[in-house]
Amino acid sequence: MNALQIAVADGMTIAKRNALKIRRAPDLLGGVVMLPIVFVLLFGYIFGSMIDIPGMTYGEYMLPGIFVMTIVTSAQITGYTLTLDLQKGVFDRFRTLPMSSSAVLTGQTVSDVIMNLTSLVTMAVVGLVVGWRIHTSPFEAALGFLLLLFFSYAFSWVTATVALALRTPEIFNNVATIVSLPLVFLSNAFADSTRLPGPLKVVAEWNPVSTLIQAARELFGNTSPAMPAPGAWPLQHAVPVSLLWTLLLLAVFAPLATRLYKRSVSR
């Protein structure tokens, strides 16, 4: 086997391990299936009764936002799992094996894509039940889901980097919550960001999460001509800019995380 074949085979072995873990661990499964359902119903009914979106139902407007919020929050599972493995000495074992040094992280991030796919399908089904609809061609809709999954894959590398730098599960969880909450809520996920006051509006419009949500809305057709057109440049070119963000995150954080992994040892 050459180096690439080894890397792929080892990555698959680790991904298989993680998939088994998700299936057996009720807490992980809860995060993957139950939490997204709760998100859709809770946010749909609470905000839906308060926020008026011109030209469409709130459910239609909100669901792409919920998709992205779930991706961002469940990427934290990547980081959390890694800190646990690091702490328990599992990485020490892996690093004494003649395996590919990138496999642990690629395996982890790939299995997280499978997890995110499960979450997305669950949310889409619940969404359809509560009134969300796709108004575009099947091709565009598929592109929407692929873009979400691709972004989730890249974002897993971000949380992996943060996790390996912070090392302990408790610290990681705190930091992840502090960072991910504003990332999700200072966006166009739940309300029209053009109505935010000055500086917050700028932050929300340039937030990559907003861009991705806008891209998903366009690809699923959850937009309305009655809505004010987004003024910021990334929101006007949401699909290509989302793709750029995803590639940028991958290019920066995949090598960074791999470097941290190679130096990681339990203490």
Partner: peptide, 29 residues
């Protein structure tokens, strides 16, 4: 050419004993 066993048993709680060892075997190719 080495095997290492640490202070903390580095085994995966959610996997069975057999799955843990099979995984290591696959990672030794």
């Amino acid at each position: 050419h080495i095997g290492a066993s640490g202070q903390y048993a580095a085994v995966d709680d959610h996997l069975t004993g057999a799955e843990n060892l099979e995984m290591v075997g696959r990672l030794y190719h």
